[in-house]
Design a binder for these strands. Structure first.
Lengths: 212, 212, 212, 212
DNA sequence: CATGAATGAGCCTTCATTCAT
DNA sequence: CATGAATGAAGGCTCATTCAT
């Protein structure tokens, strides 16, 4: 029956969604399957049925999150590869900040993965390989161009980490940031941040190239 | 027996130490008082007796941690106040990295605070006011000098966050960093990182001042 | 296996029964959910699952107890409302004593409520409103008729308490009664007691009406 | 040293007093030695030191309570033995109610012993023999006179229990009484109650004698 | 296919007691 | 003589999982 099949599919989807929200807010350990099932208006045992257990659901949520992130925030932000490296750096930083700080319905995608970095669960390795390394490699390429250096040279590495660090800070230390600087992070402010990080980093890079 | 007396008498200290290690590794929620008591070779109820409960122990651990950090890595690193702002920035960054990445017996101090940022416990507010804000204000002062701007201007704020972000990255995203760049962070490498962050930020600042 | 299924399926009922027995013997605070689960041959967590916790089970036990009492010993003992007040008083007292002193399988019903009176638990208010007040009002009506007075007059109140006091004494002070007058309280003796209290009270009432 | 000796004596007394208050309010099981020590401003271990433990303190408190009760509320209320039985019954009932319901500093004496009846602890036997039976025997004597019957006849027994029941009701069922009849039990009301119970019982007795 | 019911492990806390000075 | 410190035993509760229909 189509209805049955539909409902089954829906339950699965509702669990994925509810799981994403709860995992992002409370972390893997802090989340409880009860709350997820409740929020998804699904039976408690449905999680075990569909995903084999709490960890299975978590993995599925992450998996889906990767796909969504790739589709919604491509690291080139629509900027063609032929564009100059400065433009591509700006696009990268903007995409990353938007992805992490987006307040929309899917805001938990960013939270979720950042949480995984700070509080590693058994699936961290997959997260790194599938989501982080592609981003990192792309950024390393841009920085390499800007520095006129090999992508795996130490100079590039250090610069990549300086840029990533600036971006991740806003998500990773958000509880502190919001206490030090009360104020909302709306879309406009996020673009301001992206612009600052881009300019800040480009100035540092130009100086380095001049020095080197 | 002197041994017995000794073991009995410093139960409080052993609990503080064991608590620090376990809290740093597992977070406030993930940690269990059982494991802490076990590691401290103390009775389970001793935690309630000395600290009133799990939360009390956590607070005591954090407070002790800040005190130790202030003593071991003073934010000025012995650089006199009369020194130039560039020198003081270098000292600040070096102290922060050393504190966070210290691999010694007290290596959990850095982990502990980062965990608190990523997954706030009920005592985050106290942590921010007592430990974070003083550090932040000192850094804002230095940056203000360098930019010739007010310490609470937006330009200073953005720059402060860029610097903090670069520093925190190495602790905050350590699981990822160690996967992307396998290799050990010994004292020499830490000083290299500090030097890079200092130079990177100073170049960016000089550029901004010139531009502004 | 049908046995297994049977055992699984009426866990709720077994918990109610075991809870009644244990609560009656040890009081709300003295009772432990562990002992109740053990006696019910149920899992410890089943109490939380079915009743939300210790207090929920206690409330359910009390409610069931009142329902059983109403069904087994209706306060009118089958005496029609048209009967004279003396006859209805006799029926009321008899029902109350039988309920409280019943030695059958459900002997804990009486104990349970008396315990609640002597050492109130958080649910006493509900007990009073749902179970005690209806009984009290019925008795006040009978006494009002006998005294030809308003049901809420002080004379009626004092008399009602004198009658209730006589009845409750046998359950309330049972440990003392059994020490002062060793001997068993079988059904025949209970009816003797009911007869005595009825006669004693009616004599006192007649005297008062004559005097008033 | 007199000071030392004095303080020691004081600690003991303070523990007795605090124990009485707490035991009366919370019962033997509900009371905690922590709260008692705290209220007595004494060390936690002082209870074990002075009384051997919780039960020892409880016993000592009861023991002291007997003495106080005998001294403050003699069952004859100062009425000479030569007085008529009716007068002595009135004195007995008045003394009993005052003892149980007294709101003064020593109000816990009554509460304490009544609690013991409803929720027997291991020392109930001593309470019955030392405090209850003397009262009972005296009452049985009075009732025997009034009924012109042997003190251990069944008629006397039933009447004694009817009178005790009326008195005990106000203490034993106090939580319910205060809900059914909101209003304070001051000294004047207590004397009213005593008068009612006396008159009620005397009318019942006169009727019985007339009948018998 | 999906679910209400049940399970066992583990957690934090409270308590009366004992110990060593 | 008195006390701060430490102990072991329970107690109520939550959680992820499994079971039988």
């Amino acid at each position: 029956m189509a209805t049955e099949h539909q409902r089954r599919h829906d339950t699965r989807q509702r669990l994925l969604r509810a799981g994403g929200e709860v995992f992002a807010r409370d972390g893997f350990r802090g989340a409880t399957v009860r709350r997820i099932a409740q929020r998804a208006k699904a039976n408690l045992a449905a999680i075990a049925y569909h995903f084999g257990g709490k960890e299975g659901l978590y993995l599925a949520v992450l998996e889906q999150s990767f796909a969504v992130a790739r589709a919604k925030y491509p690291p080139d932000m629509g900027v063609a590869t032929e564009a100059g490296p400065e433009e591509r750096l700006r696009a990268f930083i903007t995409a990353m900040l938007l992805w992490m700080l987006d307040k929309g319905k899917l805001s938990w995608h960013g939270k979720l993965m950042i949480r995984e970095l700070a509080d590693p669960s058994p699936v961290l390795d997959r997260v790194v390989e599938e989501a982080i390394r592609p981003l990192h490699d792309r950024l390393a390429g841009i920085v390499g161009e800007l520095l006129a250096a090999e992508a795996d040279s130490d100079a590039v590495r250090l610069t990549v980490m300086s840029i990533l660090g600036q971006c991740l800070f806003y998500r990773n230390s958000q509880p502190v940031v919001s206490r030090l600087y009360p104020g909302r992070f709306d879309a406009a402010r996020i673009r301001e941040l992206a612009e600052h990080i881009t300019a800040f980093s480009l100035r540092a890079l130009r100086g380095e190239r001049g020095t080197g």
